[in-house]
Design a binder for these strands. Structure first.
Lengths: 175, 175
DNA sequence: TGCAACTGATTGCAAAATGCAATTGGTTTG
DNA sequence: CAAACCAATTGCATTTTGCAATCAGTTGCA
C-alpha cells in the first residue's frame, strides 16, 4: 500500500499516486459525478469497479491525502467521502486529459460531452468548478455557492446529448 | 495487450493508454530525455524498468499509435523509436502533471527543476517544445530547428541545480 | 581472426495485483 | 419482524508485474 518512491521525479510521483486503473476513475466520479458514498461509487461508475478494489483505493487515497472520510449524520453506517484541496487541484489535469482523449481515442459522444464543455470553458470555468468543489467538500463558508453551477451546466449538456440520441428516454442513469 | 474499452469516457480511455506504472515514464524519457533506443530507455531512467516490461510497453505503445519503430541505418540491430503526434500532444498534460506533483508530492529538487521551468514557460514554451519534438521525431522539414531549444534550456537548468548541490561533480548521468 | 561488449529482445519463475462472488455485522425502512 | 441497504471483508482463481538469466546476432578493437 501507500507510496513507493522509485524516484523524486514529479511525473513519477504523480504516477505513483494515480497511475493505476482505478484511482483516477474514482476521483473522476467524485469530481464530475458528485459521488460521495461507497455505494454510489460502486454502482454508479460505468466501468464496474469491484467492491474490494474500491475499498482498497479509498483507503489508499485517504492515506495519500486525496480524500477524507466522515460519518454521515443521517445514517449511522454511511460514510461520506470528501475531496481534499490536493484532489480538487486535479481538475485542470482531468480537463486536459479529457481533451486529449477526445482527440485521439474512440470516445463515445454521451461520455465526452462534459469533456468538450470543460475544454470550451477553459481555465476560467475550471476555476469556477474548483470553487464549487471546495464549497461542497471543504465546507468553506466564505461566500454562497453560485446558482448556475458548472456541474449543472455539465449535467445539462450531458442530458441534451442523451435526449438527442434516444428521444423519449434519458434523465435516469448517470455516468 | 492493447485496449480494453471498459467505457467510452475520455478519461477512462486515456487511463487505458497510460494508466499503468511504466508507459508514461517511457514517454517522459523519450520526450524530455531525448531517449530513442531500447538501451537508452533501459539504463537511462532513474526508476529502473525491467527489459521485459520495457519491450512489452514499447510494443503496446506502438499498437496504440503513440510510437513508431524504425531500423537505425548506422547499426543493423539498432531500432530507433519515434514519438507520434499523438504522443507529442501529451506535453501539456505532462507539464500540468509535473506542476501538480511539485506542489503536492515530495519531489526532489534536481528532478523537478525541469517541471518548474516548463511551468514558468507556460503554453508558449510547450508549443515551442512540441515543435522541436515534431522536428526530431516526425521529420517535418518545413522550417529549420531553432538554435536555442527548449530541451537545451531544460537541460541547462537541470545541470545548474546539480552543480549547485554537488559542486565539482555533475555533467554525467541524465535523469 | 578472435573475442568482448553491445544490440533488441525472450524465457522462467516468484510475487503481487486484480477480478469475481459470496459473506459479514450492523442499520434502516416498510 | 423481515427485506433492503450499509461499508466493507474474505477466499480463491486469474492476470500482471518484477527480477535474473539468457538469446542470437552485430560491432569494435586487437
Amino acid at each position: 500500500m501507500s507510496i513507493d518512491r522509485r524516484s523524486g521525479c514529479p511525473i513519477n510521483l504523480s504516477l505513483e499516486v494515480f497511475g493505476d486503473r482505478w484511482s483516477l476513475i474514482i476521483l473522476r466520479d467524485m469530481i464530475f459525478g458528485g459521488k460521495r458514498h461507497f455505494r454510489d461509487l460502486l454502482n454508479g461508475s460505468l466501468e464496474g469497479i469491484a467492491s474490494n478494489i474500491l475499498a482498497d483505493r479509498l483507503k489508499r487515497l485517504m492515506e495519500l491525502g486525496m480524500l477524507t472520510r466522515a460519518d454521515d449524520p443521517t445514517h449511522k453506517q454511511k460514510a461520506i467521502y470528501s475531496l481534499t484541496e490536493m484532489a480538487i487541484t486535479l481538475v485542470p489535469i482531468l480537463a486536459h486529459l479529457g481533451a486529449w482523449g477526445r482527440v485521439w481515442l474512440p470516445v463515445s459522444e454521451e461520455l465526452s460531452i462534459r469533456a468538450e464543455l470543460l475544454e470550451k470553458g477553459g481555465p476560467p470555468m475550471w476555476e469556477k468548478f474548483m470553487d464549487e468543489l471546495r464549497h461542497e467538500h471543504l465546507g468553506t463558508p466564505s461566500d454562497t455557492p453560485p446558482d448556475a453551477t458548472v456541474r449543472a451546466t455539465l449535467q445539462t449538456g450531458y442530458e441534451a446529448v442523451v435526449a438527442r440520441k434516444a428521444p423519449g428516454a434519458g434523465r435516469d442513469a448517470d455516468a
